[in-house]
Simulated assay, not measured.
Amino acid sequence: MDGIKKIRLLAARYWADAVLVIKPGVCYNHMSNLLSILYATLVGIWLVPGSSGESTFTLEATLWDVRNEYLYLTTESEASSSAVRPYGWIDETSIVAESKEKVISEFSSEVLRRFKSMK
């Protein structure tokens, strides 16, 4: 909560009435399956689909009143993506980017819906 107070004080310096705080989070897991035994051969690393990568990306938003710590709204969105490929072709950044794209579209529509419901 100490971080929120600092953010509120900074927003108050610029005469803001409310501040929207967005926190991202990412979790990436790399696992091997039974076919990974064939990685002992050098060709297996590039041809045998013995590895899988899974990414989960979350976005959390809170809208705070700057003056009195009133929480106007909070929302959270989560998306995941995965791929099963040979170890030589697993690209962590593309799997994370795919889950990030999914969560951003879902998150933006959810935040807009919450803003419209406020009166």
Rank of each mutant, 00 (worst) to 15 (best):
S117K: 10
G3S: 12
L42V: 13
V21H: 05
Y14W: 08
E76Q: 11
I104Y: 08
K116N: 12
P24L: 08
P49M: 15
K5F: 10
I7L: 04
V43Y: 01
W46Y: 15
C27M: 07
V96Y: 09
R113Y: 07
L63N: 02
S51P: 07
K102R: 15
S94H: 03
V21I: 12
Y70W: 08
E110T: 07
R113F: 09
F107C: 06
L34M: 13
S51N: 11
K23L: 01
S55R: 00
S82F: 11
G50M: 01
M1W: 10
L59A: 08
E69R: 04
S36L: 02
L38G: 10
I45W: 06
D17P: 00
L42D: 14
G25L: 04
K100R: 15
N68K: 07
V19N: 06
E76P: 08
L10Y: 14
M118C: 01
W15A: 10
Y14I: 02
I104E: 10
T56G: 00
A11G: 00
P24T: 04
E98S: 09
W64I: 03
T56H: 05
A12E: 11
W89L: 14
S99V: 06
S32I: 14
K100P: 00
S82Y: 03
E101Q: 14
G88T: 05
T75E: 03
S51G: 14
V48F: 01
N33D: 13
R114D: 05
I7C: 00
T62A: 12
D2T: 14
T74S: 11
L63G: 04
Y39S: 03
K6D: 15
Y70N: 13
S105E: 14
T62Y: 02
L10F: 03
T58S: 09
I7S: 05
S99H: 09
